[in-house]
Nucleic acid binder design. Structure first.
Lengths: 153, 153
DNA sequence: CGAGAATAGTTGAACGCTCAACCAAAACGC
DNA sequence: GCGTTTTGGTTGAGCGTTCAACTATTCTCG
């Protein structure tokens, strides 16, 4: 059966391209800043953040993957690099012999603490400073609706 | 001089993380679909789109880079691959001997035409179907403000 | 005009991500 | 209990991006 494409009208087209350009530019800017100032990509920073917030600064690999919205494979590669940098260590999971825990080292915590102010400042300058309080609220609702929608079975 | 970090308040934190998760998930979903259905990443699809819209389906490399929000290096590598696939060809620029034109081949156009309906459907399903018309409008204004802000000198 | 600066584009190495294949341990089902 | 399936995680190859270095042309202006 032939299904007609629901093309985008000019408004939708404009919205989609603006969103594409803005989100890409924002991410690239933050990524570049973090790479320059802390020597790590944003994805790695996020891993350190999640570990730092976890009880005992340790998480199962699968939980960490879930928390950072990453594939298991990506996380596995990333943790390998973070381990080589001395910022993360792996431990066997005591309750499941398949499992691995990733834990943030003192070094990793210190590196994160050093990187955080600059990065947060970047998020504020590049994102929040451009938006009114009402827009921030709108963006939150939009993003949550979107994330919800994408996670539907 | 010591500058106090302007940390994110809980609302901002929530907004930032939601935006991060949503935009990443959206891009990954569309990228995966395009890779599966058309054998190219979203970035390459965008290059073909821009070329298809240009007069005579050809653009200077630097204009193409600008239009797709890409670095010259990235574009150079990308066009090399697209050329190998037979979707794009390079030509010398007649007015500037440093310059190169990228032009969309018939094959490239056909491939784009075949990929477009599926991709547009994906954008609609994953993005617009999740939002009210008011939210679409809000997202456009937010994205344009953001892009503007990021381009300020 | 001519020297220096700016612009256009390419290249190669290093890095991060994806995908598919894989191994090991746990959970399930009869 | 034991084969099957599912889950947790890793691995290596291939691809796309970044960054810095580089060549070649054009622009600037004293």
């Amino acid at each position: 059966m032939v299904v007609m494409t629901r093309w985008l009208d000019p408004d939708e087209q404009r919205t989609w391209r603006a969103f594409l350009a803005a989100s890409r530019a924002l991410m690239e800017t933050l990524d570049r800043e973090l790479q320059r100032d802390a020597g790590m990509p944003h994805a790695y920073y996020e891993i350190l953040v999640r570990l730092s917030e976890a009880p005992q600064r340790r998480l199962r690999m699968s939980e960490l993957a879930e928390a950072t919205g990453s594939s298991r494979s990506r996380l596995s590669h990333a943790v390998a690099r973070l381990e080589a940098a001395g910022w993360v260590r792996r431990e066997d999971c005591p309750t499941d012999r398949r499992g691995q825990l990733a834990l943030l080292t003192e070094d990793g915590f210190a590196t994160l603490a050093a990187a955080a102010p600059g990065h947060v400042e970047g998020v504020r300058r590049h994102l929040f400073d451009a938006l009114s309080p009402a827009q921030v609220d709108q963006l939150r609702r939009i993003s949550e609706a979107l994330a919800d929608h994408l996670n539907r079975p």
